[in-house]
Nucleic acid binder design. Sequence first.
DNA 1: AATGAATGAGGATTCATTCAT
DNA 2: GATGAATGAATCCTCATTCAT
Lengths: 194, 194, 194, 194
Amino acid sequence: MPKLGMEPIRRDALIKAAIAEIGATGALEVTVSRIARRAGMSSALAHHYFGSKEQMFLAAMRHILAVYGAEMRGALVMARGPEQRLQALVRVSFSGSNFRRDAVSAWLNFYVMAQRNAQAARLLRIYQQRLRSNLRHALRPIAGARAADLAEGAAAMIDGVYLREALGTGEPNGTRAEQQVTSWLQAALSRRTE
Amino acid sequence: MPKLGMEPIRRDALIKAAIAEIGATGALEVTVSRIARRAGMSSALAHHYFGSKEQMFLAAMRHILAVYGAEMRGALVMARGPEQRLQALVRVSFSGSNFRRDAVSAWLNFYVMAQRNAQAARLLRIYQQRLRSNLRHALRPIAGARAADLAEGAAAMIDGVYLREALGTGEPNGTRAEQQVTSWLQAALSRRTE
Amino acid sequence: MPKLGMEPIRRDALIKAAIAEIGATGALEVTVSRIARRAGMSSALAHHYFGSKEQMFLAAMRHILAVYGAEMRGALVMARGPEQRLQALVRVSFSGSNFRRDAVSAWLNFYVMAQRNAQAARLLRIYQQRLRSNLRHALRPIAGARAADLAEGAAAMIDGVYLREALGTGEPNGTRAEQQVTSWLQAALSRRTE
Amino acid sequence: MPKLGMEPIRRDALIKAAIAEIGATGALEVTVSRIARRAGMSSALAHHYFGSKEQMFLAAMRHILAVYGAEMRGALVMARGPEQRLQALVRVSFSGSNFRRDAVSAWLNFYVMAQRNAQAARLLRIYQQRLRSNLRHALRPIAGARAADLAEGAAAMIDGVYLREALGTGEPNGTRAEQQVTSWLQAALSRRTE
DNA sequence: AATGAATGAGGATTCATTCAT
DNA sequence: GATGAATGAATCCTCATTCAT
């Protein structure tokens, strides 16, 4: 039942399957066959659409990144004032599709991938810069000159907490994560006002 | 030129080679042959001494952990007062053998390994608990009831900053990392005194 | 030149090649590569179709057994009266595809395999029981109550003679084997009529 | 504690261990290391004494054969008259050290070995001929011209019954085996007297 | 558009065997 | 006499990838 216009559907299915499979295995040592089977097609078709396993993984990474970016924009749109913007950025990092077990585990593997693959490294840097830039932007009115430093610290904190959730045994707990980051941010900010 | 008592020497060489190789490749997809060659022996001998690739990786992980623990103890011994203890813990995390490019990259891969391998997960948890426990201990006199929370946050911060260094392109910068964590800690602590 | 519907063809070729290779080598220490090469394909394809060397051997065993069973049924169909049924059973054991050098040698190795592999043991037992049951059936009208005992003995005799042919240097001689078993059977039966 | 005159002791221990190990594994795929360990020494020493794995197996085969021959001679010495000689030959085949699970299983593997190894084949033939010759000798006074044929048949019967015990799941049952052969022999003999 | 067929390359692991001590 | 050290040579098996249909 080959149909026309299947390409986007297939690609999407494969990306979702790749993330799910990586999440389930906990490693990048996932076979293309398994991913393809999970997506309901042959591995040959997967290659037809992505050219190589690596490209498929990159597409999956791009997908996670794109969704994360979209959610961030969406949250920022709703925010009123710097404090809310800050909260939005933190909250988005620990919620939505980006914080499901699958995605969290996938992230960990993208970190590893970024060590060898230039494209993956670039994608990662884009994500990091976007987050930092957004954090700086939100912090400027509140923290002034310290905004850059605080943004840097907040980003590290977010990554650290994210990592901990990725390695924990239970299901990731977004609320707890958010609170941890928020309380630190407030501490750093309140000190400023001294 | 077979000698007696080679076992500890060989094991040591293999562990070092494994860490170096993982660091160089940036991934766990390192072959036993490569590691063995780097350690100056046949892959068969590597298997003879470790039984399996996985056991070899675990030994490498244990080694990194042990050295880290030793350095931590050493620094704590020298510390006078809670503040110095705290500083020691942070400084040790970003210095010494534990913060060489190799080791940093190896850590990243151990994170991935811990997602599937129970033994690796256990080792990781031991490390995390030891760090948290040490941090709590040092924070108690300074932060009182908030010590537990702050220790938790500091640990996350350390991991986050560590992660950033692992993913950065340049050589890890321990001083910068230490300062980042320290300044946050001071912020959180100073708020307490309000 | 990939074609569709190759699976049964490939499986068949591999089974035949496995039997031939075992027969030629005289042992189970045959490599998958050799078998695959003899069957005109890569070892990877052999694994693709059988999953493992062991499964391939079991399939070969099942094949020999199935052919033997078919030949037995065929001979029984033609037989008129108990004596002819008996003769058919003995003759089939020492003729046809089941008594070619290859198969005879393969049998010997299946014996060994049956000592460790439960599935092989089961297959072997099925063959033994079928033969005994058929022998009992044929002997009942002739030997009455002694049928069970005689069937047991005839089966052992068949195996013993078969073994001797398997170990002999020359090509197995079916006629000689058949006669040996038959003459013993007649001796045992004639005693009954005393 | 290297002593002088250890050679025969070591060789003996290795032969016993080899038989035991083959019996336990049910196959020839036994490693020299395992055998040596079972015999309480290093694999290097095993090689020192036997030169190769194959030679060790042959020695084990020779040992089993020698013991079997000795037991046969012993039983024949005690026998009075042809009938007792016959009974002695059958009984010895299914009793003593030659009929322990270990040895029975080892025999099966020697059969396989005899298919490739000329020396093993020669040993096997010697055993077979000795048994046949002894059987003929005992049968001559009773069966006259038919002695040769009957000896042939009896030998096959012994092997067949032996095989069945080797493949059975339970412990070999010598009495049952002996009776089966004996009753057939008597049947064949009684027919002669008709 | 889709897939079964097919393989080359590689990788972990095993093991008989050798050798210096 | 005895062994730990060491390895080359296999062997099974996996997998990304290609291709004809």
